[in-house]
Design a protein around this nucleic acid. Structure first.
Length: 862
RNA sequence: GCGAGAGUGGCGGAAUUGGCAGACGCACUGGACUUAGGAUCCAGCGGUUAACACCAUAGGAGUUCAAAUCUCCUCUCUCGCACCA
């Protein structure tokens, strides 16, 4: 037979069409089968898929196909997180409507995903910018408003005066607008917030139950929520007018508090100095700090500064007068914005006391060298015994924490409290391309939610985007001008839209009933069948926000009765980044690979230096184009390389030569199968019963060992790299086998078993080539439906094992014995070994260690 | 500063519970086949050594019959939070 060459371009399209025509990946609820919901984080339709998507979705696809072959009813959907700023920027820059731009991008990216052969149920495709999607989000908003979980509050935001819009912190670069470079100011704006803090304890405590999540992500979430147990303490003003309240986790040092620090931004600061001679000086300081603040936050050198307010409060336990200062380093938003200063036991307070010559009192003595306030060069922040602390003297400071808090409570000067770092989620965006917030403002009735029956509030499409003057919705009267649903009088719609993180906080539910048109857009019976997501896969960059918001939404929707689970994602895999080396020359900075010939820049002929590997990005010119790779090598090569080059959770270093190697392996597999094709076509895979010679027995053992290894690697830890290398070994073993005669049906059946095993084991990874080989070997059913192979323990077991013989822990020899050989025989073989004899002759054997099936260690006295 | 993770050949990476360090692949070297080879097949490939052997898992100590793996210290890198009182 003429050997047929492996041409991925010929076969991949064919199989993709076949899968689509047969609707092989369409799923419905089936109570008799175990469900498996596999989800990869859906993409923003930016235009083209990048290699990070390819890696993410390849990992997911292999798991989906693997689970399908193992009999699970697999839900594997895909959709588009299609609201967002890039669409608006494209509109401003190129005059194309965000909707058009977005939908064109979706079409081309969908084509690319299909070219990769990903096994999605495309019938469940969703796009979050469609009213069919966001109408339910608006409904949830109304419910949240009703329950007080959505509320409006004034807050300070970054404001670009030129673009007339709020900027996220990440969009402020060195105090300037990222787009127009205008100086960013602050503005006090009414913003909508979601009360995520209503679920803060549950969000924190459930971290302990998420055993399928990486510890790293849980740690990040816990830190982000930032729970601190402490105490609120009330410091009475010296003049008897009210108190200053502080939050502290160190109430054990309250006897050492000698002055009071306030965040300069607090309104209280100006109130305290009102009408005093010092008022102007303080105002000047406060204005200066307010201006500096944002810049200084990111600066490394942060000089602690303060100004005395010419006012005192009293330490509630020592009754001593404490001067009050406004400062630049106390955070207004954390705790109460006021801090009791204990200079002997807090480094910041210590520095401040030195600068402004304020008194110190030691209240904790270290176990060894006692502290002296005159010779201290830094604060003592460790543990010790309380001194100068009234009734608590002599107690270990840690043990006194509770007692002091209780004492403060008993005298009415404080109470135990818990503080969090996490604040409520501000969701208002002064942006056009987002889901409208369903609220109407009426002069007579105030804030009025849009009635449920009027939903959805549709985002109008015929608007003009100029990039200036803020959101076009403000000026679009047909949208903004409306009537109050309560009194029928004139009203104006909220023209802010929701943060795009809102859409991604519940989309995984929508996939369960993607086209459900009845309230609340989620079919409870389908939700109950599919949710929670069994395996979620995505980038580590979403470790905090997206995952935290999704957890919040899940708990809230549960309390609304919409879903029946507490946590959305049972198992989480965070895949690493795709990196590549960078190249640059002194003249043109970063270069594309095709700008370099013979190590020189093609434009200036200067020497090119190969830089370190970094995350692929357009600006570093170290990207690879999935389209080009698919065209050149086929999707299967791209898929297998992404899996083989590194385990999924680690960063993957892209290597063009490595891709060649993966392509070579597929060719090698293709050739050996086609080479045997005529001979094995009419043979059945070996299924035991007959004796085999050593070579065939070894091949068969290898086959079954490979099934065991691949199954475990996928099942236990998703280590596809080692799974693939195991199959490579089996392919190598086939190459090394002496080719049997055509008449030797027994040998050919063993070979057929090996070949079918290779095809089945590789089916999830490289589905197109394996489908083709499956058909070529005479099968009629789809490989995608074939069952995952099983191994036979006895066949996989080694008959002979190599026992390592050590002398004093160093390998000196090896003996080969039957697998079931007894300890005594092995030991005597070891002692009698020629090489071993050289090491132990004339020495005393102290001990013999025997590890079954592994080694003998002979311990001798030197 | 705090928290988390990592450090193994020229490179990417292997190494169930402590038990043969370097699987598999890339690169490289040699051979075969070829008009040719940047195709393919076979073989070699951590370092020192003629060999025996010795040295090697960031560095140093320790526990152990035995350590890449466990403990302590030091160094380096990555990520997250960062004046959170």
């Amino acid at each position: 037979m003429m050997e047929k060459k492996y041409k991925p371009q010929d076969i991949e399209k064919k199989w993709q069409n076949h899968w689509e025509e047969k609707r092989l990946f369409k799923v419905t609820e089936d109570p008799d089968r175990q469900k498996y919901y596999l989800l990869e984080m859906f993409p923003y339709p930016s235009g083209k898929i990048h290699i990070g998507h390819v890696r993410n979705y390849t990992i997911g696809d292999v798991v989906a196909r693997y689970k399908r072959m193992n009999g699970f009813n697999v839900l594997h959907p895909m959709g588009w997180d299609s609201f967002g700023m890039p669409a608006e920027n494209a509109a401003i820059d190129h005059g194309i409507h965000p909707a058009t731009w977005t939908n064109e991008n979706i079409a081309s990216m969908k084509k690319q995903l299909k070219q990769m052969g990903f096994s999605y149920d495309w019938d469940r495709e969703i796009s979050t910018c469609e009213p069919e999607y966001y109408r339910w989000e608006q409904l949830f908003f109304l419910w949240m408003y009703e329950k007080g979980l959505a509320y409006k509050k004034g807050s300070i935001v970054n404001w670009c005066p030129k673009c007339q819009t709020v900027l996220a912190n990440e969009q402020v670069e060195a105090g300037l607008c990222w787009r127009c470079s205008a100086e960013v100011g602050e503005k006090y704006l009414d913003q909508w917030f979601f009360r995520i803090t209503a679920y803060i304890e549950e969000l924190l405590d459930c971290c302990d139950k998420l055993s399928g999540w990486p510890e790293k992500v849980l740690t990040m979430q816990r830190n982000w929520i930032g729970r601190s147990y402490g105490c609120e303490i009330y410091f009475p003003m010296a003049d008897g007018n009210g108190t200053i309240n502080v939050f502290t986790t160190r109430q054990d040092t309250v006897y050492g508090a000698t002055f009071m620090l306030l965040a300069a931004e607090l309104p209280l600061v100006m109130e305290l100095v009102k009408g005093k001679p010092i008022e102007d000086e303080v105002r000047g300081f406060v204005e200066k700090i307010k201006k500096q603040d944002k810049m200084m936050r990111t600066s490394e050198y942060y000089e602690k500064e303060g100004v005395f307010l010419d006012t005192y409060c009293l330490n509630p336990v020592t009754k001593k007068k404490m001067p009050i200062y406004a400062t630049n380093f106390v955070i207004a938003e954390y705790g109460t914005g006021c801090v009791m200063a204990v200079p002997s036991h807090d480094q910041r307070d210590f520095e401040f006391s030195k600068k402004y010559n304020l008194p110190l009192v030691v209240v904790i003595q270290p176990p060894k060298k006692p502290l002296n306030i005159h010779t201290m060069t830094e604060a003592y922040v460790d543990e010790g015994i309380l001194v100068n602390s009234g009734q608590f003297n002599g107690t270990e400071n840690i043990k006194a924490l509770d007692a002091i808090a209780e004492y403060l409570e008993s005298i009415g000067r404080g109470k135990k409290t818990i503080q969090y770092r996490l604040r409520d989620w501000g969701i208002s965006r002064q942006r056009y391309w987002g889901a409208p917030i369903p609220v109407i403002y009426c002069d007579a009735c105030g804030t009025v939610p849009v009635p449920e029956s009027d939903l959805p509030v549709i985002l109008p499409r015929d608007v003009e985007l100029t990039g200036e003057g803020g959101s076009p919705l403000i000026k679009y009267e047909a949208f903004a001008k409306t009537t109050c649903p309560k009194c029928g009088g004139p009203g104006r719609r909220e023209t802010d839209t929701m943060d795009t993180f809102v859409e991604s906080s519940w989309y995984f539910n929508r996939f369960c009933s993607a086209h459900h048109a009845e309230k609340p857009g989620l079919d409870r019976s389908k939700i109950d069948y599919w949710m929670p997501v069994d395996q979620y896969i995505g980038g580590i960059e979403h470790a905090i926000l997206h995952l935290l918001y999704s957890r919040f939404y899940t708990k809230m929707l549960r309390d609304f009765g919409v879903v029946g689970i507490d946590e959305p994602f049972t198992n989480l895999l965070t895949q690493g980044m795709v990196c590549k080396e960078t190249m640059r020359c002194t003249e043109h900075n970063y270069l594309f690979p095709d700008e370099v010939v013979d190590g020189k820049c093609v434009r200036c002929q200067k020497e090119v230096t190969v830089g370190k590997t970094e995350k692929m990005s357009k600006s570093l010119k170290n990207v690879v184009d999935p389209d080009y790779l698919i065209k050149k090598y086929g999707a299967d090569t791209v898929r297998i390389f992404c899996l083989f080059a590194a385990p999924p959770e680690k960063d993957l270093e892209w290597s063009d030569q490595g891709v060649e190697g993966s392509f070579r392996f597929l060719n090698r597999t293709w050739r050996i199968v086609l080479d045997y094709l005529d001979d094995i076509r009419d043979v059945r895979p070996f299924d035991g019963g007959e004796d085999l010679d050593d070579a065939l027995k070894n091949l068969r053992r290898k086959t079954h060992q490979t099934i065991r290894k691949v199954t475990r690697d996928i099942e236990e830890r998703f280590h596809f790299n080692t799974a693939i290398s195991a199959v490579m070994e089996l392919v190598n073993a086939l190459y090394l086998l002496e080719r049997p005669e055509k008449e030797n049906k027994k040998a050919l059946s063993v070979i057929r078993e090996a070949i079918e095993t290779i095809i089945l084991l590789m089916a999830p990874t490289v589905p197109h080539i394996m489908e083709e080989l499956w058909i070529l070997t005479g099968h009629e059913s789809n490989l995608a439906d074939a069952p995952w192979p099983t191994y036979n323990h006895e066949v996989a077991a080694e008959e002979e094992i190599t026992i390592v013989v050590q002398v004093n822990g160093k390998v000196r020899s090896r003996v080969v014995v039957p697998a079931d050989e007894d300890e005594e025989t092995i030991k005597s073989l070891a002692l009698g070994d020629e090489k071993i004899a050289r090491f132990i002759s004339g020495k005393t054997v102290v001990k013999e260690i025997y590890v079954p099936k592994k080694l003998v260690n002979i311990v001798i006295q030197e």
